[in-house]
Nucleic acid binder design. Structure first.
Lengths: 172, 172
DNA sequence: GCCACATTCATGCGATTGCATCAAGTTTGA
DNA sequence: TCAAACTTGATGCAATCGCATGAATGTGGC
């Protein structure tokens, strides 16, 4: 019997036409489909718990941590909006507005880019570093309880290694 | 050197206090943290591409597929809102409204539950099955190009197996 | 130098989300 | 039998999302 959550269609054949675009005719294997589902569900579980934990602790949402950490790594030179977008993998408009919120909370400052008048450099402030530092213990606990308590280090490394090419592929 | 996306804080020590709640003092290993990041990023890549592909094909969003597939598996008996919620792992209010949209599109019908006047049974219609069938080729292509093209079947099965306990844990 | 095109970021908009709450129905216990 | 507690699903609301678009700036061909 198929896995309970297998989304494979048993009736896709009738819907397939001889001259569908080639792209639409490729079918993932059962194993690949199972991995996809696991990926989606596991992330949903993880994200939900992270957001809830942060909210309960009266801390900002997950996206703030993500952005602040990237900015902290970037240091005094800051990052452009577009660079944050590439790191975080969220839509540009959302980065723009997230930065608005971070600025309103004094977590970052916008500085004009000396070499490109269109761009701006987003630089983290001490207040921003402090916010990130306060978020980390809560976030860390969620990572540990969601992943660490169920997956040993070897398997965890395996997951990161297997998924690396998936993440690297920006095709589309 | 630490991985570029390692969110581990180098300055969490100063923020740690002797009598923090025990829950907030657990720290994930580097491997577990890397797995967490891989999970989040890979799912973001996957979801974005699925949503875009479906939109380009003028098909409904990912959530519709998920719900319709659960309902199709459930057959004529249908599912309660709460059962769909557990399968899809989204908030109850969102299931309620997703079902509204599915109903408006004639993809499902609501039937009173014979044994519980509060509940209702959501049953997929032929139109709903047709919509899911039209979505599958697009969805399948994304699964293949995002996961299948980068991960072999053995690794895919490994991912599903390793993540299973993560998904199963509904603690919190 | 100048004009067409590309890039960078902001913003209007409609859709969707989660949380809190509510109404209706069911179960429990005395 | 009746009231308190619980369960089920709907809804108001504010926040956030992605897309489409716009304004400002930069780049390259002539």
């Amino acid at each position: 019997m198929a896995k309970a959550t297998d989304p494979k269609s048993n009736d896709d054949a009738p819907t397939r036409r001889a001259n569908d675009a080639a792209a639409a005719t490729r079918r993932p294997s059962d194993a690949v489909t199972a991995a996809w589902i696991a990926l989606m569900r596991a992330q949903q579980v993880a994200m939900r718990r992270a957001e809830r934990a942060l909210r309960r602790a009266e801390l900002p949402a997950y996206g703030w941590y993500d952005a602040l950490w990237e900015l902290e790594k970037a240091g005094e030179d800051g990052l452009r909006i577009g660079e944050i977008e590439q790191q975080m993998l969220v839509a540009q408009s959302n980065v723009s507005r997230l930065v608005d919120r971070l600025e309103a909370a004094s977590c970052i400052v916008r500085r004009p880019c000396p070499t490109d008048g269109r761009a701006q450099l987003i630089v983290i402030t001490d207040a921003g570093r402090a916010v990130r530092a306060r978020m980390w213990p809560i976030y860390a606990e969620v990572i540990q309880s969601v992943v660490g308590d169920h997956v040993n280090d070897a398997d965890a490394s395996l997951i990161a290694a297997i998924l690396a090419p998936v993440i690297a592929d920006r095709g589309d």
